[in-house]
């Protein structure tokens, strides 16, 4: 038996874990918010506009630390006051497959940063930009749009629903197409 295989496997696990937890210890822009544009609509007459993407998207989207921070901030900034634990209330549900203003992390970031006209407040000057990205990444996790290995795996409070890493992709509810 190849004695090297377990070593290799554990090395891979360690590396994967590193990536899962990787984060910048000195995040930039403690205050203020970025001004990355985000598409407001998918409709553009005659055109096929390339989706705008932000280089922060990849940094935050699949990162366990940022997702976990997003979950904490979701309560701290009273997001849960309106959206509950994803099922909604004063605000719309976030754990279903319906997106009023776009499902990309860039769109969600823009929604939190700039607000939306039917009741979503603007948190531009309330929440540092990197924390908005953390919130946006967590919002995607609520509808199963985060890697299972990175999404939060526990609820600290009275259970509202299974933890985010066990929530199915809202679009398919876990079923094959």
């Amino acid at each position: 038996m190849n004695r090297g295989l377990p070593c290799l496997l554990s090395a891979m696990l360690v590396l994967a874990a590193c990536q899962r937890e990787e984060r910048d210890t000195r995040p930039q822009s403690v205050l203020g918010s970025g001004d990355q544009p985000a598409a407001v609509t998918a409709l553009e007459p005659g055109g096929q506009r390339p989706a705008s993407s932000d280089n922060k998207a990849g940094v935050f989207e699949a990162n366990a630390f940022h997702l976990s921070e997003g979950k904490r901030l979701f309560n701290w900034f009273n997001c849960s006051g309106c959206h509950a634990n994803g099922g909604g209330g004063m605000g719309p549900a976030l754990m279903d497959q319906k997106w009023l203003y776009g499902s990309s992390i860039e769109s969600i970031h823009a929604t939190i940063r700039d607000g939306r006209p039917n009741g979503m407040p603007s948190f531009r000057d309330k929440i540092p930009d990197d924390q908005i990205w953390e919130l946006a990444a967590f919002v995607r996790a609520l509808s199963g749009n985060a890697p299972k290995s990175a999404a939060p795996s526990r609820d600290d409070d009275m259970m509202p629903h299974p933890s985010e890493n066990r929530l199915p992709d809202a679009a398919t509810l876990g079923k094959s197409p």
Binding site: A84, N85, G86, G87, G88, G89, P92, A93, M95, D96, K98, M158, M159, P160, H161
Partner: peptide, 16 residues
């Protein structure tokens, strides 16, 4: 009326 998600027990301040 708000199209809330019944899978979240705490939605609409627990009413859902």
């Amino acid at each position: 009326s708000g199209d809330l998600d019944p899978r979240d027990a705490t939605a609409a301040l627990g009413f859902v």
